[in-house]
């Protein structure tokens, strides 16, 4: 992990409120599921914001930024050449499955960022994987062209039925799981999706890891602003012990944060 002063090399709209941002970094590798803390030095937005790393090659990293507030708005309004500070790669990423276990990836909305990174890494190793990807409507399904390019097997759902199956992605996943031997689940999306995946994992006894999202100030484990509750009810840091957790490590009965 290090902090580098760099510049935006590419910024491109993926939908009306989501952007891909690319920038050079001086680290050499990342674990899918890890994230960066990113901000524009001197901007009125004070703290950096966390983003899952979607891609990394030849020293250039890419994140997917969905506009949810002031910080993400400032980044999405930035131009090629804008100076940015990037701290990373932060946190604990996904642990890869055993060779023989098919990886079942599950993404919701802009949760595709870290899942794309995982998908690309698994395919590069010749692993079997299927991606279940859901969103509210077609325009919220991101990275579909890139997924096709890397040869990913993608099953989509939208809540309005405008692309793929109609309904929630967890429902489509559950229907298919009967026909998959020894699946291992990897998810990133809204809290409701993570919770549904944890429930499927518990009910079927299949292993599952989820990447959690949280507001945070530092990203390195010292502000204690991103704590979530582990299975014993103790606080753990999303930025340090996570953001990827085995679903059995966390408490799921409490309401989403």
């Amino acid at each position: 992990m290090n902090d580098c002063a760099t510049k935006i090399e590419l910024i491109e709209a993926l939908s009306n409120d989501a952007y891909r941002i690319r920038f050079a970094v001086d680290w050499k590798a990342f674990d899918p599921g890890q994230f960066v803390m990113m901000g524009i030095p001197g901007n009125v937005v004070f703290l950096r914001r966390p983003f899952g790393i979607a891609r990394f090659s030849n020293g250039v990293a890419e994140i997917c930024c969905k506009v949810v507030g002031r910080g993400t708005r400032a980044l999405s309004d930035a131009k090629v050449g804008t100076r940015i500070d990037v701290l990373g790669p932060c946190g604990r990423g996904f642990r890869f499955p055993q060779k023989e276990e098919p990886a079942i990836l599950v993404a919701g909305g802009y949760g595709i960022g870290p899942i794309f990174g995982l998908c690309e890494a698994l395919l590069a190793q010749g692993r079997r994987c299927i991606l279940y990807y859901g969103a509210r409507e077609t325009s919220h399904l991101l990275y579909l062209d890139e997924l096709a390019k890397i040869g990913a097997n993608v099953k989509c759902s939208t809540e309005d039925g405008s692309h793929g199956a109609r309904g929630m992605i967890a429902e489509l996943l559950e229907k298919d799981l009967d026909n998959i031997e020894k699946p291992s689940l990897f998810a990133c999306g809204p809290h409701g999706l993570s919770k549904a995946v944890a429930e499927i994992s518990r009910r079927r006894g299949v292993p599952a890891q989820v990447s959690m999202e949280s507001y945070m100030a530092c990203g390195i484990g010292v502000c204690l602003g991103c704590a979530c509750k582990d299975a014993d009810g103790n606080f753990v840091r999303t930025c340090r012990e996570g953001p990827v957790f085995d679903v059995r490590e966390l408490q799921w009965d409490s309401s989403p944060l």
Partner: peptide, 23 residues
């Protein structure tokens, strides 16, 4: 001390609020 429930931090104009609760 476990500290307070979430959310514990939020950015405000030129700064931030925290209520970690002495965890």
């Amino acid at each position: 001390r476990a500290g307070n429930e979430m959310p514990r931090v939020i950015e405000t104009a030129s700064g931030m609020l925290n209520a970690i609760g002495l965890a």
